[in-house]
Amino acid sequence: MEIPEVLEIKSVIKENYKTKTFFFNKKIEAEPGQFLMVWIPGIDEKPFAVSFENPLGITVGRVGSFTTQLLKMKKGDKLGIRGPYGNGFKLKGKEICLVAGGRGIIPLAFLAEKFKKVDITAIVGANTKDDLFFVKRLKKYCFRIIVVTDDGSSGIKGFPTDSLKDLLEKEKFDCVYTCGPEIMMKKVFDICENYNTECQASLERYMKCGFGLCGQCCIDDIRICKDGPVFNSKQLSKLTEFGVFERDKSGKKVYF
């Protein structure tokens, strides 16, 4: 049934100055990259990647007014959850690389947990040291982590895409998994194409119904909510709007 199930927040963990994880008394089974619609009763409802499945947890970073309200929620408060929706990341091969930008680390940390049996290299990008989170969580499952910040306050100064290029110069991966700002993901995809490496990216668009009817989240003729949100290289190569524009709440094009 496509209707929110209202759950009590069981615990809240602060991940950094603008990011928290909310846990619920519930188990789910999800593919990494699948998402949930999270309803603040009487306010609004937005999509969030599954962060933990047992117990169910979502990780929320402050973006706008909705996440600001969500971050005020405490243990015992109630949220509506529906999902998980969409198609997630698929495990491909034995040596994989993750490229996370900002909040994009959320589904990728969950991915590392699920795919822990393979060799995982993670490139974690953030604006500054203070924006980093989940690096410890990743350390449990990744044999190598490369931290990259815009200002050099932690790890290498630069962009995660530069680190990916350096790696691909020297080694080969069976698949590169990416989530983060779309411009970054487009670059990751282009780099992967240049190095003949399979890529999977989790895309984001303004989402409303979440189950493929309203059309709000379309990119080209693809519904992010139902056909995505994760796409492989073959699918990405056909998307003419990838890295070009998204649509706002009304459907108006907003160029990146």
Partner: peptide, 28 residues
């Protein structure tokens, strides 16, 4: 242009019943 109503805009009430209030979101 209209942003339409806040979410949820489309829910299911029984197996055979959906309710929607999109609020004519469209870019004009």
């Amino acid at each position: 242009p209209r942003g339409g109503h806040n979410n949820p805009i489309f829910i299911q009430s029984t197996k055979e019943t959906f309710l929607n209030a999109v609020g004519y979101s469209n870019p004009g």
